[in-house]
Amino acid sequence: MTLGEAGQGGLTIEGLTKTFRPKSGPVFALDGVDMVVEPGEFVTLIGPSGCGKSTLFNIVAGLEAFDSGHIRLDGAPSHDRLGEIAYMFQKDLLFPWRTVMGNAVLGLEMDGLSRRDARERIGPYLERFGLAEFTDAYPDQLSGGMRQRVAFLRTMVQERSIMLLDEPFGALDSYTRTNLQQWLMGVWEEIRTTVLFITHDVAEAVYLSDRAYVMTPRPGRIQTVLDIELPRPRESGIEITDAFLGLERNLKAELHLHGTDDHDG
């Protein structure tokens, strides 16, 4: 894949700034964020709570305006990105009144697909996502891990060239989390869309991504970019190799060097 091809999922962010202005006084959320994400890359944003990661995602998704800077999709300046980028929020946001199938087809429904076509497109994935027996179940009958898988399925089948995943495994226990990380890698190896992924977890960042952007506390800025040059597909057991542990150590050092505090959010 070459950089800048239309619809390939390349994303360029230049000098992005964002200040919130509530009555209590201005809050500088982002201060000159630069990022280059090439098509098909898996890129992680890591940083302390409140460093503006989610704000950055909201801006990239088109939900929020920004003060200055540029966002380009595949090299072209982009103004309204709503409907162009698939976004998986921190909360699973499954609609309690829709079944697993109903939730999974939501994005397709918004794209104007008929109910039947949408269900047909979901069908093949249900088995893969471990949801086949739960097609007609309501979300409150599902475990946390299953709910995240439904939310991911809903995001993935929109077939956008860029996916934003905001701490999708943040609320899960470590066992479920590890399982879902491996599962996500498996799925992603097949679809290879551009992914931007927010996490607090250093090991998760190293395991999943091609590159990790470390952000500073408010105002959010890119502090370091760390290339994760580990072979793909990432085999299980990779997390105890020297290369992995070295990268994990580097990333931790970056995060702690600048007095980041992970417990303020």
């Binding site: 976004y87 939501l106 918004m110």
Partner: peptide
């Protein structure tokens, strides 16, 4: 829930669909 509405907006929904869906 504001986030639920934002989710739908990222899928390209306008006011009417936000209301109905």
């Amino acid at each position: 829930d504001q986030d639920a509405m934002n989710l739908l907006r990222t899928m390209g929904a306008g006011r009417v669909r936000l209301l109905l869906k």
